[in-house]
Nucleic acid binder design. Sequence first.
DNA 1: GTAGCTGCAAATTCTTTGCAGTTGT
DNA 2: ACAACTGCAAAGAATTTGCAGCTAC
Lengths: 150, 150
Amino acid sequence: MPTKERQTRQRQAIRDAIADAGVPLSPREILDQAKAHVDGLGLATVYRTLKLLADAGIVIPVEIPGQSPRFELAGKHHHHHFHCRQCGKVYEVEGCCGHFEEHAPAGFEIEGHEVLLFGRCAVCVGGKAPPDRAGAKKSRGKPGHDHHHH
Amino acid sequence: MPTKERQTRQRQAIRDAIADAGVPLSPREILDQAKAHVDGLGLATVYRTLKLLADAGIVIPVEIPGQSPRFELAGKHHHHHFHCRQCGKVYEVEGCCGHFEEHAPAGFEIEGHEVLLFGRCAVCVGGKAPPDRAGAKKSRGKPGHDHHHH
DNA sequence: GTAGCTGCAAATTCTTTGCAGTTGT
DNA sequence: ACAACTGCAAAGAATTTGCAGCTAC
């Protein structure tokens, strides 16, 4: 009984929301975005779809300590994340120093790694107007400008 | 009005539990350990104490994606963690390739970083006596000694 | 003696699940 | 048609908070 997955408006909206954002989004943020395209969309559907997409390897969870998991499209170029402690935004950062294998204890089998940088983003460093806590939106690791959010 | 913090039996037991374990412990695990020394200890006290200790910089939270935060003593030599996907155990790994600053977008101020390696630990690789537990899937597991999931 | 703790239970917050109705194929 | 999908509400699980009694200082 191979499960056949259907293409529905809500799933499309959820995938689009994740794809359109330049940064990882939380389930709540995904709901807010997707709701604009599918009226009445429920949070449960977002969670169910997220699990489906994650299991299918289409999206991957990105976790920031102390916060709800966020999701981004899989298949991107290898990268990690930066978390601004001042505005709360999450950016993608290219590059990776690699060579983590050599630091693992002998006999351990390294399958992968995750790196999270944190500090203050360019906006907060230079800005006089700290955009205080907010759900991150787009901003491909390229500071300088950003727009709307709650 | 400086808040004077008291030394109590429960706080001592909680700190001891964290100090005695060689690896980060979850609030639940800390409770189980500390309960052996302080009868009737409540989980709320563990959480409250953990927050206190964390704010005071005495312990630091260690987060494994999809799991409850764990805590370990601060002040150790710079290190990161390894998460065995098979047995769920968390190990400390020495060393760090550093040089993360150069990978951050221009203008960003890096205050710190976190690295998490994952794969299979030596015990699981050797396969003799795999202390199995914790699914290789995304679920709320409870490494160490756990039970339930749904 | 008193402000700071503590345990317990109720309250929150986040995520999952049970159902009955809806919809993609 | 019919199983898969959806929204809603209830269920769970993890963490926080309100309180009245207890305790370190």
